[in-house]
Design a binder for these strands. Structure first.
Lengths: 683, 683
DNA sequence: TTGTAGGCGAGCTGCCGACAA
DNA sequence: TTGTCGGCAGCTCGCCTACAA
């Protein structure tokens, strides 16, 4: 109990850590990401004197200690890891073992975010009825009033007593005596959460989850680090609250890991940075996908009050190393993303592939304004692409338990977009993202800016989209409505039709074709160096699992084709995709001549009354600024609009459903998009 | 104010730091001691991967920031240091510059240690009259009752208001309203101190000095490190209170320093470790002394309540490198010492030369039982020493402002023992030492024991003193009475007489003679390697200031003769010294046959009545155990007694004067010490 | 069902002189 | 001169019901 290294009840630990957190089991295999570890330390880790470090290291989990900070009660884990030789990469058995952990039953627990009254006023706590009835000991309602003393153990094993009374008109459950002591000792404030949990042995446990405090001197950032420390007594709780991993500890761990020595790493699940020890099966599965820009995905986040999980839709804007200088070849935060709701997620600019779940089995349309900022990865603008539909598309194998077999086709029994749902286990909370509103401007130390490579990159994207705004506009509408998916997806078994056009899946293309096409096209254009550079990454579109690639650092095999894929998606021809749950609909604004026509078109597309839409259609321009439709001439709107958004359920204050409409400018050399419509490129 | 790097008022800073603390001025030259810096971090500093580091590095002070911890208000300095090339060792101008800082007037300030009533009871603070009348604003005594609001700024510039009232019978000054808020916010407890200071601009300032908390899991140790950290919320204040310097910061500073780069070092004056940036003049002056065992010195410590300074007397037991493996040739903690009051200072086992002040200008008698434990530094037992009195003695130049000139003699106008009083500025507090009572036993981690080399060494000494107790005893009496000094010191100008024997000062010996004697004697004894080893350290007894020695690491010159000196003192012939303030008198116990004779002798020597002594003569045996005279047969007493102590003023409870009597066993090959008396070796 | 406001009583905080060291 | 004690007044803490969302 007084031993700070004493593991606490894993169930209480998980209840405090939040529903998104998944800790690998002992003996399972994980990939350790030094880059993620450094990020988790929330401070500058100086690798300048370190040798080149593999971006990911396969390890066996030797031990997991579920711990809690003695001062703040913040939960964390200490994971003992043993680096494995590359030959141990066979994860078949491991996947099964790991999955077994999911079958452990969750104990009855309840979390409540403290209200002002809970935290400030006369020392009482309103117990939600559900909590009182399912978590607390049975109360004798025949007494008048019904009272009992609730005894709960905290993460340190310390015992807290609360007077639990059922009184008032109407009757309600309250904690009175003992509560304010608890609040004061634990330094709880409104917004913090309390977790009650009935352990397997029947004991009642109590844990706390502190709110991510939003104060001027601290910022949270999923895109790099969450807490910028300033020496100020006022944010002591913040300092103590998260991010205890010191840079030296990271360097030590990395040094040991790189040397093949066992090492220890602490992970604070509430620190708002992604897990840096990831189940090897999950990583391998994620990297089996050939990621490319334009792919639609969803990603799970904890809601702001940590009570639920929200899914957010997004589009891969580019696929590139987040830090090619320090961590070349690292899949960590490989995907640069654009969110359908960028306001909420504005600081999540790149994510790791295993955190997202592909939203569709269909090829994605290229978001052509988003050309990658780095010359190295770009294909020349004038490189034309085959118009026969035979271009490379990503392979999908979201579920690590289902090995992707060559030419395997999707069956109707596996709903698209549900595959790979396990990915959802890794994620972040929404409140972290809200914190990021303060992230902008000059709060970063110059020396720390290197931690936010994504910001820099997306700036580049913004620049590109400005300069690439040509006259040809096509508009893609996505709708948060899964019913339409059936319409297009349930037709022929191995084919997808979009607006009458046959869409081929990657499995319907041979890999040879892909690389040949690229190589041939490159040499035709006479820019052999650059294409050599890219063609040597093209490899095979379908991974040969029996002979894993061994050339990558740390012996990890994953699909190195993504660069090729990226090249492909960069060209303006690869721009059609079909969404799963949220069907994307493309709207070519250039065929419309006025707002009136736009409203009519939208009304037709979604079956909503024109009157319902008035004043509720918003759009984003290339700078991501959200504007109201009608504020400027239609011609100007048409040129700058990138995405449309129709707010429904206007009676409510914005909580209603939102349909998102993504408008995409086309920069292709197509000569008559307005005549052929958005899918004309397939003609 | 909110900038944690903002320097606070230096006067307030000093008031909080304590009277012993002296911070070097900007542009002055200091020696930076990496070893001391590591010690100051209070934790293990891993030098295993560091290259050999110079033990001291001459630096110029580029900047000094007087700071205070945002949480605890603990004051500390950040010193920016620029390493200097060895050629810049000329300190003449520097000494003047530095001394100028002493002329800055101290502002009116008052410190009070909080009583129980101040800290606990009804929120009031008893203001000592002196403080209220000299520090606080003038109070209008015509009012009834006289009240005012005292406004004071703390170290952060935060303003505190206190109701100051003069009331009660009898009248007294009290702080009421506002006081308990202050106590709570600053988390003050009884024993902590508050400092009120009237700044030069008239503003009232308030600072705090926290008591060194004595709790089970923390130990203080001047001899190594003070705080052994245990993860426990209860001693958080302790953890935050002192010792913020992290090992990595030390390593970084040392790396920069060794590379000649500017670097920064933080020093927490209340952390109970000695300053590791020491005025270069002070170090040079201290090292100009040829330290050897047996030398008597005094050293200043802060009293337990930090209000005053106490001087403690001690004897150098040996002179050796405190950590010859990690820090060979380092003068840091060069002196191993025995204290006259070992109970209070039991953990101060080795000190740096610049911290102590020689108690006499006279040569010291060797405490021969203390032979150095390390073979390397020892000279063979059978190496006989010249009996003509021409052996090396330390040179004295305690005051860096008074360059020691060759053959300079002591003048009557400079009282011996006052020279070098500036040394008193570096020191420690008594309360640190009291803490050390808990230091013993198994509180140390095995890995940390290397930090206490002195402990190991003094163990060795104890062993040696046991085995070396031979039959020949001589007894040296020292008396804490300066009047007797005159008796021997005011006679002939350049000579000292002790019991009729002429004592030659070092200046009266030529250095050539010294080294020649040693070399000659060595080769006579036919052990040329070992003596070469020592003779190459003998150098010149009088330092040649115009041509500094350059062979030492970091180009520092100091008297490397101490090894030779040590060798000299190890032999049983060098055993006469005369103390300054506390005149040493040698008493040969072997000439006495009974306690009766002893009493008679002592009565004669000090002019005290025999009856006054009865029951008040204590002695220490070789194990330093203090015993009462008469408890064992005189023959046994005579063999083991090392030091006699006569307690006078018996009516008082031990606060009275003490006369110390050091008994020295002689292990020399003298054939008739009893016939020649203690000074017979000069015959 | 549960968050907040206000009543109100108990207990604690903190100011006071008395007394003593 | 100043540390500590007990008295006591006022105020805050915290339990409660009422009311509203």
């Amino acid at each position: 109990m007084k031993d700070p290294e004493k593991s606490l009840d894993p169930q209480l630990w998980h209840a405090c850590a939040g529903s998104m957190v998944q800790i690998p089991r002992v003996n399972s295999k994980v990939f350790y990401f030094p880059q993620g570890h450094a990020e988790h330390s929330l401070s500058f880790v100086d690798f300048s004197s370190s040798p080149q470090i593999p971006p990911l290291i396969l390890c066996q989990v030797a031990d997991v200690k579920f711990l809690a900070d003695a001062e703040t009660d913040e939960v964390y884990v200490k994971i003992m890891l043993i680096p494995l030789p590359n030959s141990e990469l066979d994860l078949e058995g491991d996947a099964l073992l790991t999955d077994g952990s999911n079958t452990v039953e969750k104990p009855a627990s309840f979390a409540k975010t403290l209200t002002q009254s809970d935290a400030n006023n006369g020392g009482g706590f309103s117990v939600p009825r559900y909590c009182a009835e399912t978590i607390f000991p049975r109360l004798d309602y025949t007494a008048d009033p019904p009272v009992q003393t609730v005894i709960a153990k905290d993460v340190h094993g310390d015992i807290w007593k609360f007077r639990h009374i059922y009184r008032g008109t109407p009757r309600r459950h309250l904690l009175t005596t003992g509560w304010s002591t608890f609040v004061n000792q634990k330094k709880l404030v409104a917004g913090d959460s309390i977790v009650f949990l009935r352990a397997e042995n029947g004991e009642l446990c109590v844990g706390i989850r502190r709110a991510k405090r939003e104060n001027g001197s601290s910022v949270g950032s999923y895109g790099g680090f969450s807490t910028f420390l300033r020496e100020d007594a006022s944010n002591k709780m913040m300092r103590n609250g998260t991010g205890k991993v010191r840079p030296e500890a990271v360097l030590e761990a990395i040094a040991l890991a790189a040397g093949g020595q066992p090492f220890e790493a602490s992970f604070y699940p509430r620190a708002s940075t992604p897990e840096f020890c990831v189940q090897a099966t999950a990583v391998r599965a994620a990297m089996r996908t050939r990621w490319c820009s334009g792919m639609r995905f969803k990603m799970a986040f904890e809601t702001e009050d940590s009570s639920r999980i929200s899914w957010f839709m997004g589009t891969v804007s580019s696929v590139q190393f987040s830090d090619p200088f320090l961590w070349p070849n690292s899949p960590w935060r490989l995907l640069q993303v654009m969110w359908d709701e960028p306001d909420l997620l504005q600081n999540v600019k790149c994510v790791s592939p295993w955190l997202v779940e592909l939203a569709s089995n269909m090829p994605a349309i290229d978001l052509s304004p988003f050309s990658p900022p780095r010359k190295k990865l770009r294909i020349p603008d004038h490189l034309d692409f085959p118009l026969d539909g035979q271009f490379p598309m990503p392979s999908f194998s979201g579920n690590p338990l289902v090995p992707s077999s060559p030419l395997r086709c999707f069956s109707d029994s596996v709903p698209a977009g549900i595959q790979g749902a396990r990915h959802a286990q890794y994620g972040l909370s929404l409140s972290d993202l809200h914190l990021n509103n303060k992230l902008q401007s000059g709060l970063f130390l110059p020396g720390l800016q290197r931690f936010d490579p994504c910001t820099r990159i997306s700036d580049g994207i913004m620049m590109a989209s400005h300069t690439n705004n040509k006259d040809n506009l096509s508009c893609l509408l996505t709708m948060g409505n899964s019913s339409q998916k059936e319409k297009s997806g349930n037709g022929k078994r191995n084919q997808f039709l979009l607006f009458g056009q046959l869409i081929l899946t990657e499995q319907q293309l041979s890999s040879e074709t892909v690389s040949e096409v690229i190589t041939r096209k490159s040499s035709i254009d006479g820019i052999s160096d650059k294409t050599k550079d890219s063609s040597d990454c093209s490899g095979s579109a379908l991974e040969n699992q029996s002979s894993p690639e061994k050339s990558l650092t740390a012996g990890f095999l994953w699909n190195r084709d993504y660069r090729t894929t990226e090249l492909c998606m960069d060209t303006s021809h690869c721009k059609v995709f079909l969404e799963s749950e949220d069907i994307g609909q493309t709207l070519d604004l250039s065929v419309l001549g006025s707002y009136e026509e736009l409203y009519r078109k939208l009304a037709n597309m979604f079956g909503v009354e024109r009157s319902e839409m008035l004043g509720h259609v918003l759009y984003q321009d290339a700078t991501s600024a959200v504007k109201q439709i009608g504020d400027e001439p239609f011609s100007a709107f048409m040129k700058t609009a990138k995405r449309l958004m129709i707010r429904m359920d206007s009676g409510n204050d914005g909580v209603g459903r939102q349909w998102l409409t993504t408008i995409q400018t086309a920069k292709s050399g197509l000569d008559g998009p307005s005549k052929r419509g958005p899918l004309g490129i397939f003609a």
